[in-house]
Design a protein around this nucleic acid. Structure first.
Lengths: 208, 208
DNA sequence: AGTAGCGCCTAATACTATTAGGTGTTGAGC
DNA sequence: GCTCAACACCTAATAGTATTAGGCGCTACT
């Protein structure tokens, strides 16, 4: 029958089935049989397209993150100023998460647990992704929008950590509310801190 | 042979074996056989003490988090001021993480993935844990240390998210550096933002 | 027509969690 | 001293579940 005349190619059908099932039931509880049944073929056939269950798992976020990365530059194109860029970055990213909750669920709730996540291509892409934030903070420091002694790496940790936390909770609560609900306020709270950290030195305010 | 005369009770031996193996190899790759062999008994015997593999997994962080929760009040006892309390909280918690990296690894890298984590006792305890931060921020807001319109819930999100991020990376990188390395600086950066969020209103600075 | 190769299948194989059904030791009650 | 119940543990099923072997039919090119 040559090419499959279903809506999508076989590989795509497998990926979509796996994405749905992994996100719904978790990695462990999803069996190869579940996936192949959902995709409409036998278990053995699945192995023609993927090396195994783990390979299949890793393929999903790999595709998503690569796509994000490609879109990012275009999104930031033409936005001037570090604060505006950061704002655009966050709003854009959260919308992406909202649009692809299954992918996000896999990245945030399943992937990090995977022992060799740091050895995957996905991780390399995520690092690339975060590197953009470093550039933004460096720009902000240089053009005076942010404190001149702002440490871009720590600012990134705060922004990434906070966003991860907000997204993870939203996913765990089955996205029963809007991800943007308090984004504006939390943005102000974080960025406010980056702007005016003028004091720095030895004030004896430590407790420990 | 009545009571086992090994250093510890059988249940403790099983827990320690499981903790080590889960943290080292991950949940999936650790088999019941691995654990029972390490603990020095048969696979079946393990089921006398735990309902199954997942029950065993959940027992470990349950013990750790309960212990933390008990210690917390005592640690904050006598510390005055919201900023000082927050500082004490973070330094104390990170030291605990440093002292119990296996427990931390299980909580941060394995548990969150577990589909029904939110239904566990551990989750209830974690919520309790975080509630202390809310109290601290409310105190800070009332006594003037922090901005009067600081939203305690969002401040908590920032602190918890940032700490989770820092801890997770430290664990993923096999704790090859000190967890306290830039804690002071990151603390200042976060708390700085909480102190002086005076502006609030409609300045036309939005991009989206 | 013959045949290489693709896309898929059924039927092993090899693990692994969990359970059934013991066995030997201990200690309280007669 | 003997019985018997409880305990702590064991060996040997059982029931999945990932992965592999080997085959079958169709297509398209020679």
């Amino acid at each position: 029958m040559a090419k499959n005349n279903s809506t999508k190619t076989t590989k795509e059908r497998i990926i979509n089935a796996a994405k749905k099932l992994f996100a719904e039931q978790g990695y462990q509880k999803t069996t190869i049989m579940d996936i192949s049944k959902q995709a409409g073929l036998s278990e053995a056939a699945l192995y023609e397209y993927f090396k195994g269950k783990e390979d299949l798992l890793l393929t999903i976020p790999d595709l998503w993150v690569s796509k994000l990365l490609k879109d990012l530059d275009e999104q930031l194109f033409g936005v001037t100023g570090a604060v505006n860029k950061l704002r655009k970055f966050l709003w854009w990213y959260l919308r992406r998460v909202e649009q692809a909750p299954l992918d996000a669920k896999i990245v945030y709730l399943i992937l990090k647990t995977n022992a060799n996540f740091m050895a995957t291509d996905v991780y390399a892409n995520v690092k690339d992704f975060y590197a953009h934030l470093i550039d933004i903070f460096e720009e902000g420091r240089k053009n005076g929008e942010m404190s001149p002694d702002l440490n871009p790496y720590l600012a990134r940790d705060i922004v990434v950590g906070t966003m991860d936390h907000v997204i993870t909770r939203w996913l765990l609560k089955d996205r029963t509310y809007s991800l943007f609900e308090s984004l504006e306020e939390i943005f102000e709270l974080m960025v406010g801190g980056f702007k005016k950290t003028k004091r720095r030195g030895k004030n004896g305010q430590n407790v420990i």
